[in-house]
Amino acid sequence: MASKTGSCLCGEVEYELAEEPTSYGACHCGMCRKFSGGIELGIQVPPGGVRFVPTDKLALYESSDWAERGFCMLCGSSVFWRFTGEGPLEGMFSISAGTLEDMSGMTFDAEVYIDHKPDSHSFAGERTRLTEAEVLAAAGVETGDDG
């Protein structure tokens, strides 16, 4: 079973989830690839589903009109992406899966922005694969920007 707790590389940013995560997904958008060093693996957590241990080391970067990203200002770990726009996804987090103490028992069940994936790599196995247009339609976002 995966853990409910996680932290950045240096340990300054720590959090606890309300529920044990059971699955993670990958986002292939250009922004996530830059933010995460190449492959973003995240777990979807609803607003209120995570509590961060109070710290002044968690920095926020507004990456678009409708999303922000959280990272540790001491070690640069990519900690989360969060939807800040309105609509069904409002407040939704994608918390970087690798920050979990333990990822065991999780399934890799989704790849989004599959039409933005570079040719340099792809993942084996079957799972839900959504294009940018499909993701934006689900999120109720009309802009064509990455998040």
């Binding site: 932290s7 950045c8 590389l9 993670y24 933010f35 995460s36 060093g37 190449g38 492959i39 973003e40 693996l41 995240g42 070690c75 640069g76 770990s77 990519s78 970087s96 899966a97 690798g98 920050t99 990822m103 340099s120 790599h121």
Partner: peptide, 19 residues
């Protein structure tokens, strides 16, 4: 060539995998 690392430091730093 791309080297992929799954050590826990890379996982914590780069969201799960470092390329």
């Amino acid at each position: 060539t791309v080297s992929v690392c799954y050590c826990k430091m890379c996982q914590r730093w780069a969201s799960g995998v470092f390329m």
